[in-house]
Amino acid sequence: MSQALVIVAHGSHLNPDSSTPTHAHADTIRETGAFDEVKVGFWKEEPHLREVLRTVESDEVYVVPLFISEGYFTEQVIPRELRLEGWDVSQWDSDGLSADHVTLTAEDTGQQVTYCGPVGTHESMTDVLVRRAETVTGDSDVGDGFGFAVVGHGTERNENSAKAIEYHADRIREMDRFDEVQALYMDEEPEVDDVADYFESPDIVVVPLFIADGFHTQEDIPEDMGLTDDYRKGYDVPADVDGHRIWYAGAVGTEGLMADVILERAAEGGADIGDALELVRERTRGQQTVEV
């Protein structure tokens, strides 16, 4: 029986770069040959979530949402649009961070679909955040003398969003690699605007836990942190802010190693991926999918 991977993401009607990381991660995984087919589906682009499964020839499909946290999209929109028969969020039995996978039948195609939890809450996402710090500083041993800020939206619209930020910040802290680790938010305390106040380290790596670069990561956050007074003028990496050097990484989702998290989600759901994880970890080192 052949197996397919379908990566589902938000996409955008306005921002052409929104889907770029999704395609890039699909390419990375396709090159490993672990799946007979690797496809992408979107909420705002084509193929739409509603029609992506019918483009897949395999009977066994692993669907991995390229989303940061559990919530409206992973719990309602995606299962509804994919027509997963009998879906109920309780099947994930999640505390907001622990959704793993559930196998259901797609109503229109009859395929067996293993629907996985979002990439953002997977433990290996912590490694991608760290890899992002290595990429943006160009130093594979970065840590000493550095603070690390993980940035998220905050709880205003989705309480699980902040849970994911805290979760990864805690895990990076436990690595004991960076001098300081702090979770920061866009719309609540501690705010990313005051990034310099939360660190003593001279250097701070700032990594937003976002899937794609867009309005928030390219306009809001750089301006809020004072990297630039106008995003259109761009900003330096690193940039000096209140006596600190800020290494702003842009959305973590553009990091090549994200493909690893997608693969792990599918493998935990039962996909046979052979040595694809090793291949991806090796090939994505020093490679980012979108220029900062």
């Binding site: 938000h10 955008s12 306005l14 940061i68 999209f73 979002p118 619209r157 989705n158």
Partner: peptide, 11 residues
């Protein structure tokens, strides 16, 4: 118009 799409993409 801008906010609509961003709101929609929150997860």
């Amino acid at each position: 118009g801008h906010d609509e799409e961003e709101h929609d993409g929150d997860d």
